[in-house]
Amino acid sequence: MDHAAKPAQKTPAIILLMTMTLLGVFPLDVILPSFPALAERFQTSSADIALSVSLFAIGLSFSLLVVGPLSDSLGRKKLLLAGMSVAIAGAAGCIMASEYPWFLFFRVIQAIGCGCFVLSQALVQDLFVGKEQERLRIALVTASGIFISFSPLLGTWLQEQLGWQGSFEVFIAIGLLVILKACLLLENTSGTASSRHRNILAAYWLVCSEPRFVGYWLISALAFACHFSFIVISPIIFMEQLQLSPYQYALALLMYGAAYVLGGFAAGVMNRHMQASTQIITGLLLIALSGLLMLFLLQSSMSAITVLLPMIVCTAGTTITRPVATSRAMGLFPQNAGTSASAGNMIIFTCGGLISAFINLSASNLIMALGLCFLVLSASALTLNSLVNRHNQRACA
């Protein structure tokens, strides 16, 4: 597959990865302030629009089934260019859709194309080595969080200037930039001899038959599901239940970005001084603490502060947990980075989509559902971490 990047190529590679990370917030986060406008446009409810985001995540997870293994055999560049082209076509279709079913259809097309974003994990594995990989993954998760926290503000501005179509139009523009950057930076590769002769099912069996691989990705997925569930239902909590305007909602979520910065800084320090298992446990305990805080604060009157405070704690825990769990999973099969990234991200987005859809059904008490969800998911992830540690000990024995 691709060779480690030369020093002069590392900065352009990081810019490409950051641009892909920025582009990833548009289908899921920049669109959030447009929920009321989309509901009015397609004569449906905001809850239906929220479910469309969950559907997007589930559709994305199925796209990931083939993107990674194909990139191991055909090369990252070809799959990235093809995926971005499909995603751009889906976004254009969303703009032109006149009815809600057609909007959902083109959202799924966009999701299928966005499966190529999983290649960012494979590119990190291909172009960087050793501790560089974990540091870059921490930086990407932190950057993603910062982009997410600013995305509602950007979405509000785009809604005011361009209408709900604005987020899709900017997605198309940045997508074209990614295509150009990939054409200039990435080499045309066709994979290793072993990956070319291994079919998709065999590739998945190779990685998924390793319990530690599945365990680490499930830990990352459960941590992500906490974050994703809040993001999906946050417009309902803030704009419908708390009656905030889209602009006030965007400003409230700016505080969310502080958690990503704090979590990213803490993850960087822990990465230098702590073992991976200790980092994972620390992050998961923070998620559990956020669940307890959410249930405790529920006893008082609900406000933006009582909702955001536990979410800031949860997000810091997620930012600490996910990069190290992901790096440990990806490091088990470095020669099958595409398949590894696809399998893992399929687990992540399936968990995120299904759990957020389940919480969305608890419309009468979303905060209690979130708090209980955080406690159950963190406890499950802690159990998985314990099991993975046992397998690590057996492998070293």
Rank of each mutant, 00 (worst) to 15 (best):
H3Y: 15
A4G: 12
A5M: 11
K6M: 13
P7F: 10
P7N: 08
P7L: 07
A8M: 10
A8F: 10
K10N: 11
K10R: 14
P12C: 07
A13D: 05
A13P: 09
A13W: 02
I14T: 12
L16S: 03
L16K: 03
L16Q: 02
L17W: 09
T19C: 12
T19G: 11
M20W: 03
T21S: 11
G24F: 14
G24L: 09
V25F: 07
V25D: 03
F26R: 01
P27R: 10
P27N: 10
L28A: 14
D29G: 02
V30D: 03
I31R: 02
I31T: 10
L32T: 14
L32R: 01
P33C: 08
F35C: 03
P36L: 02
P36C: 06
P36A: 05
A37K: 07
A37F: 00
L38E: 05
A39R: 01
E40P: 03
E40N: 13
R41S: 11
F42L: 02
F42V: 06
Q43L: 11
Q43N: 12
T44K: 00
T44P: 00
S45A: 04
S45T: 15
S45D: 10
S45H: 04
A47M: 13
A47P: 13
I49F: 00
I49S: 01
L51M: 15
L51G: 12
S52Q: 04
V53M: 13
S54V: 06
L55I: 13
L55N: 06
L55C: 05
L55Y: 13
A57T: 11
A57V: 09
I58Q: 01
I58H: 05
I58A: 06
G59P: 05
L60E: 07
F62Y: 11
L64H: 10
L64E: 13
L64D: 08
V66I: 14
V67I: 15
V67C: 03
G68W: 03
G68L: 09
P69V: 01
P69M: 09
P69Q: 06
L70G: 08
D72F: 00
D72I: 00
L74K: 14
L74M: 13
L74F: 13
R76W: 01
R76D: 00
K78W: 02
L79W: 01
L80F: 06
